[in-house]
Computed example of a mutant assay.
Amino acid sequence: MNSHSSGGKRTIQLEINKERYERDILASDTLLDVLRNEIGLTGAKPGCLNGDCGACTVIINKQPMKSCIMLAIEAIDTEILTIEGLENTPIQRAFVEHFAFQCGYCTSGFIMICTALLLNDNKPSPEKIQTWLSSNICRCTGYKEIEEAIHSVINPRK
């Protein structure tokens, strides 16, 4: 494990978006807090802070995780992908083309959950898409446009 302690804090190394970061953190610091406050990656958003809304979703070893309920020390020796690590992906373009957002606060979490789904299953069934999307909450819009966006990536028009 890549860490050492001093004065209540411990130094850890995290791999985020294929870059290494070393930070001094408390054992109680959440991954969300470290990403936002220590590293400056603010794409994962604080919402409910109890794992219900999904605005803080990141991908850890190709699996979606709610960074508000994960301790940063649990992310040592993992590959962390945040919205900042995505660059003009098909799902990001599809969200724009299908107007799959309104205020945008939850959008990064939805893009991350869709990205994780497609990393694990490049042809998910409509039922599987709905199940995965149910882990995130949007208070501004319905999920129809989000579902259309992911379907457009799975079955692109020629």
Rank of each mutant, 00 (worst) to 15 (best):
M1L: 10
S3R: 09
S3I: 11
G7W: 08
I12F: 10
I12D: 02
Q13R: 15
Q13V: 09
E15V: 08
E15P: 03
N17M: 04
K18S: 14
R20P: 01
E22N: 14
R23M: 12
R23A: 15
D24I: 11
I25K: 08
L26S: 14
A27M: 13
A27K: 12
D29E: 10
T30F: 02
L32H: 07
L32F: 05
L32V: 06
L32M: 03
D33G: 06
V34R: 06
L35N: 08
L35H: 05
R36V: 00
G40V: 13
T42P: 01
A44D: 04
A44S: 15
A44G: 13
K45F: 05
G47R: 02
C48P: 10
C48N: 04
N50Q: 15
G51H: 06
C53G: 06
G54Q: 06
C56K: 06
T57R: 07
V58C: 12
V58H: 00
I60Q: 05
I60V: 15
I60N: 02
N61S: 07
K62Q: 13
P64R: 11
S67R: 05
S67D: 02
C68T: 05
C68D: 00
L71G: 01
E74W: 09
T78H: 14
T78Q: 14
E79L: 10
T82I: 01
G85V: 01
G85Q: 03
L86D: 10
L86T: 11
L86P: 11
N88Q: 13
N88F: 11
I91N: 10
I91S: 06
I91W: 05
Q92A: 07
A94H: 07
F95L: 01
F95G: 07
H98T: 14
H98A: 12
F101P: 03
Q102N: 08
C103N: 14
Y105H: 02
S108F: 03
S108M: 06
M112Q: 04
T115D: 01
T115M: 02
A116L: 07
L117E: 00
N120M: 01
N122C: 08
N122Q: 13
P124Y: 01
P126E: 14
P126W: 09
P126A: 09
I129W: 03
Q130K: 15
T131N: 08
W132L: 07
L133K: 04
L133T: 05
L133M: 12
S134R: 08
S134Y: 02
C138S: 09
C138M: 05
C138W: 08
T141Q: 08
Y143K: 12
K144W: 00
I146A: 04
E147C: 05
E147D: 04
H151K: 15
V153S: 03
V153D: 00
I154R: 05
N155Q: 15
R157F: 03
R157L: 09
